[in-house]
Nucleic acid binder design. Structure first.
Lengths: 395, 395
DNA sequence: ACGACTTAATTCACGAGTTAGAAAAAGCCA
DNA sequence: TGGCTTTTTCTAACTCGTGAATTAAGTCGT
């Protein structure tokens, strides 16, 4: 635990960060309002804002009339000050998107891949980067950074361990950095999606939250005290591989009774098929949707879905009891399908498994952004850094 | 999420805190060493230390000869600058202890109680406080604060919800504050014990850790980024009531399949007795020890203990996967008994349930301090505050 | 015993920061 | 135009950490 000094420079950076973050998050604000909410003196706000405007990070955005006095000038982050890129590395495709600072999409490129071989992924990300830069017409010096989301465990230095991709200690960050001058930030896909939901979706306003993702696999993003919690070596959040049925179904991670083996879409379908029933759809997502359709009427499908909600609720209750979040957000493609139908049931079931006290303090919601938010979330990584550094650019 | 300004005062407080914490935690240090490890300039260290010495928080502690130059003067926190009190409220007794700042015990008072009725507990804590002050001869103005540990959920304001004591929303902090001028800090007993282990026991040096306590009940203290993690309303850490066997044994919390229902001492003994076997001992702790003795030879006792280790390992693995700590420390009276016999087995079993990556990063240890550390940990609460505030006293 | 050398701690002037309060700017209303 | 209100900027005062120079306090060789 390295304790570190504070200098007068840190103070200024911190205050710049406070102001910039305020402007970014809570839309156009006047200097007055900034002064109120940060409790910085009007003098300091003015001083800092002048500097931020001179550097181009912040711009004035019209004024608002007051009751008989000088009108307030509104401030906002200059959308076109810099740009950010978000990349999503999936099992079947690489998607690269370019955003302005207000997170408007300016360009998107998708590239399907057959086998997620590291070298090829690197190639596609770099090509996608060039491509979005070209089509958007943005000068590449103006790109603040590239956030890359991968579904697997990502070390602090961008080393990726992803069993689903068959990657073991792939230094993705370094490999990408060799192909471009733009800063690269690699993170877990669950985390980036969680980050997107926290900023722009169902997580807004919460400081202690969990974004739980249920797709073919199961994961979670932990947010503690307003920022993402990653653990010692940033592999926290492997909620899908917590044991929920000791000695139960075997999971692809090698252990038995993992939550994922009960609520992951693949395993839900397996559980259904093991009853002897069949589904028309071949595609996993279509099959899952079909199962949910069948489940409206009593029968084996309904029973399976029922059980799934129960297991999921127990998994949620574990989060509630252990982490005591103020909000849990359910996402992932399967999670969304389940959530839109069974959210009230789910909430109720969580109440049955969780302790009264922490249960009373949590609200359970469904993601608002859909699956495309993975790249969006990745793109927020450089923005987050910009805000944290008070608008100072990485040298 | 209130973002707040930083002023030049915060800077000074922060630097005082950095220095004071360094001196407190890493024994006598010279100004030089402080300068090195905090990266503050020698000038600032000198300046801050002068101030701290003038206020009496820090004192010089002899000097150490150097190789041909002026000897370094060592600095340490003045043990007798202030004193702190720790209280443990258990089901059968109230213990109050008085410490100096080096955490030497100067006085102890125990008081057995039959029924943990709030008003009585308050009375006993306050009487204990007077008593330790009297026997130690410490002037009560010199007492920095009283940390009170209760086994239950403790809100931020010292409101206690403890099912085992039958307390529902008891404003213990406020009740105590009415009886004394000394600042009162109430916290969960698992947290205070965890705090003690983190400072003085098996948790030293770790920044992301979990202290897991197994006694009659089961709980945990979460430490994230060097400080205790409490969640939204400080009820985080209810590890004992996470589901580990979906639909399994019913737990006293009302849910089914909680970890506590499998590894809590009471339930371990129940599981044994359900096999039809009996134990000579009546007392729970003696019975548990007897069970462990019987388990050295193959038979039903060994099977039960075997299963217990398995469940416990799964519970540990859940922590490893979800929280990615660098260390897990096993404590509690039953945990200690299990740990001293089965630690290697336990570690191995955790490896079977956890993901490879996070498992490789965690070390699993046993508590070093024993059960008396609950009051010690409670007493660290005011010390923690002193260090955090850079030696400034609560006004 | 003395002086050269080494290392530790303090002093001091300076630049960078925030703040309170005064002054200026910018609008509204009569 | 002039009075009024509200927002923003300017100014002087004060705090703090830093680097360079200085002082303090030893060791060691001769």
């Amino acid at each position: 635990m390295e304790v570190r000094r504070t200098t007068v420079r840190d103070m200024r950076r911190s205050n710049r960060s406070v102001i910039l973050t305020g402007i970014y998050r809570d839309g156009p604000l006047s200097r007055q309002e900034l002064s109120m909410r940060t409790s910085l003196s009007p003098a300091s706000v003015s001083n800092l804002v002048t500097e931020l405007i001179a550097e181009g990070v912040v711009e004035e955005a019209g004024s608002v009339e007051s009751e008989g006095g000088r009108p307030r000038v509104l401030l906002r982050v200059a959308r076109e000050f810099r740009y950010v890129v978000g990349a999503e590395v999936g099992e079947t495709r690489v998607r690269v998107e370019l955003f302005d600072l207000a997170m408007n999409v300016l360009a998107t490129v998708d590239h399907s891949i057959d086998a997620p071989e590291p070298a090829m992924v690197v190639k596609h990300v770099l090509e996608g980067l060039s491509s979005v830069v070209a089509t958007s017409g943005v000068r590449s010096e103006l790109i603040l950074g590239v956030g890359v989301a991968v579904f697997g465990i990502v070390d602090a230095d961008g080393v990726v361990h992803a069993q689903t991709l068959g990657w073991d200690a792939v230094p993705l960050g370094q490999m990408l950095a060799e192909g471009t001058d733009i800063p690269i930030l690699v993170d877990n896909g669950a985390n980036t999606l969680g980050q997107a939901e926290m900023w722009f979706g169902a997580g807004r306003g919460a400081t202690d939250a969990v974004v739980a993702l249920v797709g073919s696999g199961v994961g979670a993003a932990l947010v503690a005290g307003g920022s993402s919690y990653r653990g010692t070596r940033s592999s926290a959040g492997e909620w899908g591989h917590t044991t929920i049925v000791y000695g139960g179904r075997s999971c692809r991670c090698g252990a038995a009774g993992c939550l994922e083996a009960y609520v992951g879409a693949e395993d839900v379908l397996n559980r259904y098929r093991e009853t002897g029933a069949t589904l028309k759809a071949i595609d996993e997502e279509a099959a899952f949707a079909e199962l949910l359709e069948l489940a409206v009427a009593p029968g084996p499908a309904a029973a399976i879905v029922d059980d799934t909600i129960g297991y999921l609720a127990a998994g949620f209750a574990n989060l509630v009891n252990l982490v005591n979040p103020e909000r849990i957000v359910l996402g992932g493609w399967a999670g969304l399908l389940l959530g839109e139908r069974y959210l009230p049931r789910l909430r109720e079931e969580v109440g049955r498994h969780a302790l009264r006290q922490p249960y009373a303090q949590v609200s359970i919601e469904v993601c608002e952004l859909g699956r495309d938010a993975v790249a969006l979330g990745a793109a927020t990584l450089p923005v987050l850094r910009l805000l944290r550094d008070g608008g100072a650019l990485p040298s």
